[in-house]
Design a binder for these strands. Structure first.
Length: 188
DNA sequence: GCGTCGATGGCA
DNA sequence: GCCATCGACGCG
């Protein structure tokens, strides 16, 4: 058995359409170094694509505001927002500057024996301690980044995005992706 | 195991 | 007023 090569994901990986990025992020590993030096890692198993100002489920449909500003910027940065008065959501900005797309990270499987529930976007952000302070964070930087561990990509299942009933015809689009067979996929 | 409901604050 | 959610609760 050859040893799988660990490859860091660079800017070009993120500077693509959110649909492609959302698919390709399944099976990739998030790595986050905490202030005390601890490293936490998890394998992404569920994502959703939000594909621009025309997508009524995408926050960028409201135009360029203080909240959505980072989505209009360079791919590979974190778009972190607060919702329901208590939850933070981690998104990864996709595409090129001016094209406001992002991928919501909905669930992951903790690695290295880390005992935490990362099933659902609120729990995932909480587990990794993503907050307002991380909005705009470069995810190709030293503290938080993604890697491809070289393992074969999982079979991917497509479905409708969760919680976007308000988005007119956009609610029907199959823009949610998850790894087939993972027990860590959010329940709904 | 399921459906329903309340929490709680930023946002347009 | 709504929301890219979660956990608690009641059911029988």
């Amino acid at each position: 058995m050859p040893i799988a090569r660990q490859r860091r994901l660079h800017r070009s990986f993120f500077a693509r359409d959110a649909i492609e990025l959302a698919r390709d992020l399944i099976g990739k590993t998030i790595v986050r170094r905490l202030e005390d030096g601890t490293v936490r890692r998890a394998r992404i198993v569920e994502t959703e694509a939000y594909i621009g100002e025309h997508d009524l489920a995408c926050h960028a449909a409201k135009g360029r505001t203080n909240r959505t500003e980072v989505m209009f910027g360079e791919g590979g940065h974190a778009y972190v927002y607060f919702i329901y008065g208590m939850h933070w959501m981690l998104n990864i900005v996709a595409s090129k500057p001016g094209n406001a797309q992002a991928v919501l990270i909905r669930a992951a499987e903790p690695l290295d024996g880390w005992d935490v529930n990362l099933t659902g976007p609120g729990r995932l952000a909480k587990g990794f301690s993503f907050t307002k302070a991380d909005n705009g964070l470069d995810l190709t930087g030293p503290s938080t980044y993604l890697i491809d561990n070289g393992s074969p990509p999982p079979r991917i299942v497509k479905s409708k995005r969760i919680g976007v009933e308000y988005a007119k015809h956009w609610k029907h689009r199959l823009l949610r992706f998850h790894a087939a067979g993972s027990k860590a996929v959010s329940k709904r």
